[in-house]
Design a binder for these strands. Structure first.
Lengths: 197, 197
DNA sequence: TTTTAGTTTAACCATTTGGTTAACAAAAAT
DNA sequence: ATTTTTGTTAACCAAATGGTTAAACTAAAA
């Protein structure tokens, strides 16, 4: 692993757990096991290092989503694939959703920069598909964006609000693993039951 | 308004928008229109001031929830009341959910402290009620905690991930207001359609 | 009218923090 | 073999930041 990679990995770990404002350059250097000056040698500033980490995180999730959004599967299959895919991925990157959401809320100016890229999550095609299936009478009529937000909410929220959710529902760390696995199927069933005619 | 109140309000505003790590004592003083020393005079330290704000925020939401959780209404009515109530409240306190979630993730040690209070959101009774309605055959059988998390997710997530949601679904600030109003009924319908036999 | 207790401010302080510099080492290019 | 480029470190710096202090001010109590 090159020094630059060491730095990037350490930065990802620290930024994702403490956020931009809470992260310390020294801590990143320590975790990477290198001198603090190297951070600036490779990434110039805290802001640029953060940007690298943030964009990487974002563009790691987005393409996966778009692949499903834009595939030729039926809506029901897409919902199933999305929950399955997303939960499996985020299980391996536990802090990602909370991190992205937190930093987008704290630095709304990022939004434009991040979403100008072609790799942004773009549900346009999926929305069109939902509308078509409504017109065909396959599913109930509703605002497609509300439906999309339902799926998104049910899938992402348990990770984004992890600490709170575990505490309120009194779920231990081990139980949470099982709970998430169970949730893949649960979300799919709930959504399909809710919208099918 | 007393100086202490001015400080508290300013602190709430700054902490909720920037989080603990991103907030600056000087900024809070400026927003309160008073000298920085007053913050320490009344609240001793940044940490204590933050704690006051955070606990206040938390205990503002929790009792409302419990009131609904523990009422004698039927499940369907409770769901309706919860979404209606929560969305209306949070519309007036836009940064609350993201703030609470962010700080609980960043300082998990808070969890014990916050949730030891009797004012914590406690869905135990609601879970029992769900189980009973399942046994009676009124609603489909499923893990009650999954169902609770569904309701919670669909209601809270749009606020917690506000910036992201608006950006991805391409909803303007004004449209978002209407969208949220529409969402009250939408969530209720979706959930009830999903679980009713 | 004088105490006294609480309130407010400007100036100050110590530490933290992001960032820089200059010397040095190792590798690449000549 | 020697120069040049790249990588690495320790020491340092200026600004920011949470916190303190001592003096001034205010209003109510004595």
């Amino acid at each position: 692993m090159t020094t630059e990679e060491k730095i990037f990995n350490a930065a990802r770990s620290v930024f994702q757990q403490k956020g931009y404002a809470g992260a310390r350059m020294q801590e990143i250097a320590d975790e990477a096991g290198i001198n603090k000056a190297m951070l600036h040698y490779f990434f110039r500033s805290k802001e640029q290092l953060f940007k690298a980490v943030f964009l990487n995180a974002f563009y790691q999730i987005a393409p996966q989503m778009n692949e499903i959004f834009n595939s030729s599967d039926s809506l029901f299959i897409k919902i199933e694939k999305f929950t399955e895919n997303y939960i499996s991925f985020v299980k391996k990157n536990r802090f990602l959703p909370a991190f992205i959401i937190q930093e987008m809320n704290n630095n709304p100016q990022f939004v434009k920069e991040v979403l100008s890229n072609e790799a942004r999550p773009n549900p346009a095609k999926l929305i069109k598909q939902v509308q078509e299936e409504m017109e065909k009478g396959i599913i109930k009529t509703m605002n497609p964006k509300q439906l999309l937000l339902d799926i998104f909410s049910m899938t992402v929220f348990p990770f984004a609000a992890q600490t709170l959710v575990k505490a309120i529902l009194e779920i231990s760390d081990e139980e949470f693993e099982i709970f998430l696995e169970e949730r893949k199927k649960h979300i799919t069933e709930q959504i399909i039951n809710a919208i099918k005619r």
